[in-house]
Amino acid sequence: MEKKRQWLILAMLGILCIVVPPFMGTYAVHVLILVMMWITMALGWDILGGKTGQISFGHAIFFGLGAYGGGLLFLHWNITPWWGMAAGPVLAIIVGIPIGLVCFRLRGPYFALAMLALNEIIAIVFTNLDTLTNGATGIDCARTWGAEKLPYYYIALVIAAFAIFVTYRIQNSKYGYYFVSIREDQDAAEALGIPTTRYKIYAMIPSAGITGLAGALYMNYISSIYPETVFALEAISIFMILAVLIGGAGSLWGPVLGGAIFAGLDEILRATIGPISFLVFAVIAVLIIMFMPDGIIGSWPKVRAYLRRRKLTTGSEG
C-alpha cells in the first residue's frame, strides 16, 4: 500500500516534469535545467561519497573531464559536442579508475585531501596545456538550438532520470549493500569477504561517469567551457558536497532533493537578494551541518518525532 502510493506520487511528479515546462517562461526552464544538472551531479557524488563513504573533495575533475570530452572532440576535429555525451563520461571513467587505484589506499580525510590536490593539479594542467586544451581561453562551440531552452531541458530530464535509475539499481543489488558496508566498517566488510578496494573502484565508475554526464550536458547547454569554471574547486567540487548534504547523503531521494534545492535556491537567492545570496547560502550550509548533519531526508525521522512530541504536549495541554 505504502509502496503503491510512493509509485503514484513518483509517476505524478514525472508527468509534471514532462508536461508543465513548455508552459513556463525561458528563465524558469533555465533554472529547471540547472536543477536537473545538479540532481545528476549530486547523485553521482553520492554513489562514492554517501554510499561508499569515500568523501571526494575533487569531483569537479569528473565534471570537467565530462565537459572537456566533447569539447576536445569539437576543438580538434570539429565533431559535434553531442558526442561528448558519450566521450565525456568515458573520459571521466578512464581517468577515475587510476585515480581510485592510487587514492583508495588512503583512508578518511587523507583521501579527501588527495582528491582536492588532484583537482587543483588537473585544473592547472588544463589551464596550461595550451596545445591540447586551448588553455585558459577555453572552448566555444555553437549551440544546436540557439536560444531555445526546451530541448535542453528534456535532455537534462532524461539524464537526471537515468542517474536516478542507476542509483536505484545499485541500491537494490549486491553493489549497494557492499558499498554501504564499506562505508560503515571497512574491516568488517573485509571479514565478510568483500574486496573493499575493488568495490570502491566499482563505486568510482558510475560516480565518475554520471558526474561526467552532467559535465557533458553543461558543455552542450552553456556552450563554452573554461578550466577555471568546469574544474572549479569551490563552485563545483565543494558545492556538490553541500548539495548532497542538504538533502541527505546515502539515500536515493536525499541527493535528488538536495540537488534540486541547491540549484533552485541558488538561483532564487541570486535573483532576490543578489549580492548577499551566497552569504545566506553559506550560513544555511553551516546551520544544516550543525543541526541536521544527515540532511533533510536523513534527519526527517528525528524531525517528525520532534513534531509529534510537540503536538502531543500541546494537545494534552489543550
Binding site: 568523501i55 580525510p109 546515502g250 552569504l279 550550509a285
Partner: peptide, 19 residues
C-alpha cells in the same frame, strides 16, 4: 552518514566568513 561532518563544517564556515 558522511563521516567528515566536522571538516565540512569548517568548509562552510570558511565560505561564510569569506562572504
Amino acid at each position: 552518514i558522511i563521516p567528515e561532518s566536522q571538516v565540512l563544517l569548517t568548509l562552510a564556515l570558511g565560505l561564510a566568513i569569506t562572504e
